[in-house]
Structures are given as C-alpha cells and as structure tokens.
Design a protein around this nucleic acid. Structure first.
Lengths: 224, 224
DNA sequence: ATCCGTTTTGTGACTATGTCACCGACACGG
DNA sequence: CCGTGTCGGTGACATAGTCACAAAACGGAT
C-alpha cells in the first residue's frame, strides 16, 4: 500500500484499502495562501477539510464588529465542525482564516457521507475529532469565565512562541485571541516586561523568562 | 405504522420502517427524578439519550469549584455531544443534571453506531443535532465576551419565566447560568426592581414589566 | 409560638477588566 | 523628507468580579 496524505492522519492510517482508495479519489488537494478566508458565515461549505500543512484560525464576529478566537486547526487535524453544518445544510456562523500558507484535502459532502456509512474506522475518526473540538470549546468557556487575563495571556504566549522564543503578533491580535481588549493586553505585557519576563518590539514579543510566565500559569491550577 | 416515541423527534419521524424497528428494540425508555446526575466528568456514558420529557442542564465545573452553565437540553432534543465522546471512547468533561423529572430513550453505543452506518436520515438527525449545539456554544461564547450582564440577565429571565411570569430560581442559580457572580445578579436584580420591571421574593422573581426587560435586550442588537 | 441552623439575599470596599478618547512613535511608499 | 496608516501607550471612567460580612427568610424541632 503506497504512502499517501492519508498517513498524515492518525486515525485514518488504519483504513482498509478500498476505503483508502475511495478517499483518495474523492478528495482533492488544494492550497491557499496565508490570509485567505476559507469559510465564512452564511456561506455553507460543501467540503470537509483535512489540513496537511499550515494552521487555520477559526473565529466568530459579533454584531458589534469585534471578534473572538474560537480555536485553531493544525496540520493533521480536520475542520470537522463545519461538517455538522454541512450535513445539516446549515450555515456556519464562524469564519476560518488561513494563518499561514495552507494545503489541505477537500472531501466533498457526498464522499464524506458515504465513508461515514461504510467505515467504522472513519466514523471513529470523525467523532474523535468532534470530541476534541468540543472539549476544547468547553475549556475555552471555562477559561474565559474563570481565568484571569494575565494567566491566559502568559499561557498563550508560551503556546505561540516559536523555537527562538519569539511571538509574532500585535497586541490587537493577542487581544482577539483572548477575547479581551487591546489596552488590557498592552498593560499586561508592560507588567510582564517590568518583571523581566519579556521584551517587546513592534509586532513581536520575545520571551526572556519563560519560567516566570510558566510559574504564573501554574500558580492558578491551569490545564493546558 | 404505529405511533411511538420516535415521532416526538422531528428528524426521526421519516425513518424507514426497518430502521424504526431497530431503534425501538434497541432503545430503552428510562425515567429519572429531578436532580439526578445523568452523566458526570470522568464517567464515559454508554448511551445516547433522547429526551422525551423534562429538561437537562449541562454545565462544567472548573478546578476552583465554580460552575458554568453550557446549555440546556429540552424534550425532543438529544444529548448528542456526549455521543462524540462515547464513540471516541473519551471521557466527557461536563456534567448533566436533570432539572425536572425526566424521561428519555437510551440508545446503546452499538445500536447508535449501526444506525449511523445504515441510515442517511439518522445521520442527518445526528449531525443536525450537533450543528445546533455547536452554534449554541458559539453564541454562548459570543455573549459571555461581548454582552453586558444586565442584558444577558434580562434575556435569561424572559426565557425562564413560566406562563405566569414567574422565574423560580435563586440568585445563585441565575449567576451560574450566566457564568457570573451571585452578588452581580443580586445588584442587577435590585436595579431591575427599582425600575419596576420585576418583584422579588425568596427563590423567585416575578416579571411585572416584560416590556422593559425586552427593550433592554433589544437595545443591544441581541440575537436570541 | 420560639429557637436554631441553614439558605438566601444585601452591602461596602476593593480589585480586575473593559471602554473611550486621545497621542505619540514607527514604518513605508511616494 | 513628508504624509498616512498601523501600532502601542495612557488616563479617566464604567462595568464586573471578589471578599468579608451581616441581615433576613425559611424549615424544622422543641
């Protein structure tokens, strides 16, 4: 059995040969540049996306124009929540934006439906993906309601930092990631800087004291 | 075809006869008294529940012991989110509590899986239920982040009021419904009372000025 | 009825977060 | 070198959450 994109997905690699074949012939590999709007509210998607490379940020716009970050889809994961809406013929209320250049496999609705019917393994893959997303959303809600902003910011910085301990993001971006206001991020970052945990320059944050940030996060019974 | 509980569910009534039969024989009708813990974190449920009567409140406990209300399952709906975790063999992180006496149909994991495989209509039912829950969660997050507490409280009171314009709930309960603190609810209710929109007594709120509450809700581009 | 323990509600002081209205610093393309 | 737009900083104020209590309301039990 030859190696294909299917093997990039944990739950799919054990699919029987006939199903693999169907997936491969039904799915189409697409790539889009960073910044592309992959799906948008009111525009019902007709494909299930399986991410091969890059990340997609899913967020929701409120009536007032502000935005909340919901979750991020990484390579090897699927935009599975869209599929519920896809199969239910409902519009999706969030929008998805490619944060980096992205390549993905698009599985058309009909193929998806057929595979769900035919293969127990595929079903398990789909439901596991759901499970993951849903618990993510639960933790998000929990965080928003109960965690202090400084803790959440520290935790997010640790997550977003690249191997050189640098986070490339404006205060405004960080603010929507946390569902808070830019000013709050600015003030909190100043405080972190005062404590010697970070250094700032336009559009980037350099972590100079991971341990301090980590301690702050740990100090409040954090999960992630 | 005889009338069964299946006909209480919009999306299921059009199932072909053989599938109906399988559902009926596989599902077991259960009833539990108000206050029962129907599922709990760390205890993976082995059944899909379809609610026939009553309501179930789904909430999440944080590490700190406080609780957030996530959503409410009404008669004619299903606890579908548990199923993802059920099929993914993962533990559910939220708990479900019967708010009233509840009767429901429990579909065992195996039956559920088989029906999903066999019937397109059943699949559509399941995914539509997902879709509903997920968009509910999105709206919840949106609300928590962007809506003022007074607006959310007013809106919730209107929702929870029985036909006599009475809401039976302590301030503490209302607080967890909104993911806020009891004191905030107390103060906001006092303000509503001062404006003549409600009257209070221990454990209940009487709406005497729905219009005022409604105006408050409408005044901030509300959705629900 | 009266007393007692529990639950519910009220309140003030204080902290944290969000909002508004700015301003200045910086980057980039003419 | 000069606009123009983005980014970050700041003070004043509004809203929301926390903490520490106290007062009231209720439900038995005597």
């Amino acid at each position: 059995m030859k190696y294909t994109w299917i093997d990039s997905f944990e739950g799919l690699s054990r699919l029987p040969a006939d199903i693999r074949a169907e997936l491969e012939s039904g799915g189409q590999i697409i790539s889009v540049p960073a910044g592309t709007q992959i799906f948008a509210p009111g525009q019902s998607s007709d494909n299930l996306l399986l991410l091969l490379e890059g990340t997609v940020r899913v967020q929701q716009k409120s009536e007032t124009g502000r935005e909340v970050f919901l979750y991020r889809v990484h390579a090897g994961e699927s935009c599975v929540l869209t599929t519920a809406c896809m199969l239910a013929h409902e519009d999706y209320s969030a929008d998805g934006i490619a944060e980096t250049d992205v390549s993905a496999v698009a599985i058309p609705r009909a193929t998806f439906d057929e595979l769900v019917a035919k293969s127990k393994t595929f079903r398990e893959f789909v439901f596991a993906a759901y499970s993951r997303r849903i618990t993510d959303l639960f933790t998000l809600i929990d965080d928003i309601v109960f965690q202090r902003v400084d803790v959440r910011l520290a935790s997010r910085l640790l997550e977003l930092a690249n191997p050189d301990d640098v986070v490339n993001a404006t205060h405004a971006v960080l603010a929507t990631e946390l569902g808070t206001a830019r000013e709050v991020v600015s003030r909190t970052l100043s405080e972190f800087q005062r404590r010697g945990w970070i250094e700032q320059s336009r559009g980037e944050v350099r972590l100079t004291g991971r341990s301090g940030l980590a301690r702050l996060v740990k100090s409040s019974g954090a999960h992630s």
